[in-house]
């Protein structure tokens, strides 16, 4: 493969990390169209709609499996996973979030109201007079 072609592929695979949901939806639509076309052909060949659908799915090799293989080829799986893990689990990221919460007036107000709701308000007793 030429250098230019490798670079183009690399850029496109890297770019695909950022539009995951949109591309997933687009491929789901493409697979749906594929199955419809195949089912129509099968029905024209004399199959019942149910058998036509079953055969189309079988020939595809499974919708989820196909999606999985496509996703692997579309992005950079290792890099994509690393980014997700970093964003969720990194202690550094958590620390930044903690600091941010501590200094943000909105969060402080929300925390205070949460504290009041739980610790300061009396329990709700439906029939106070009876008690």
């Amino acid at each position: 493969m030429s250098l230019l072609r490798s670079m183009r592929t690399g850029f496109r695979r890297f770019g695909a990390i950022f539009y995951k949901r949109q591309r997933d939806a687009e491929f789901a639509a493409e697979l749906k169209s594929h199955l419809q076309l195949h089912m129509e052909d099968n029905v024209r060949a004399g199959m019942t709609p149910e058998a036509a659908r079953r055969e189309a799915l079988l020939k595809l090799g499974g919708v989820e499996q196909t999606k999985e293989n496509y996703r692997d080829r579309r992005g950079l799986p290792v890099l994509g996973d690393t980014f997700s893990r970093f964003a969720i689990r990194s202690p550094h990221a958590a620390q930044i979030t903690g600091l941010h919460r501590g200094h943000h007036p909105g969060h402080c107000a929300r925390d205070r109201s949460h504290h009041r709701a739980i610790h300061c308000r009396p329990f709700h007793t439906p029939h106070t007079a009876a008690v």
């Binding site: 493969m1 592929t9 496109r12 195949h38 595809l60 090799g61 196909t66 692997d72 080829r73 579309r74």
Partner: peptide, 16 residues
């Protein structure tokens, strides 16, 4: 297996 056509098409598309 028809499902294998799509990753191959994507590869060709990525290569231009």
């Amino acid at each position: 297996n028809y499902g294998t056509v799509y990753p191959a098409l994507l590869k060709l598309e990525q290569e231009g």
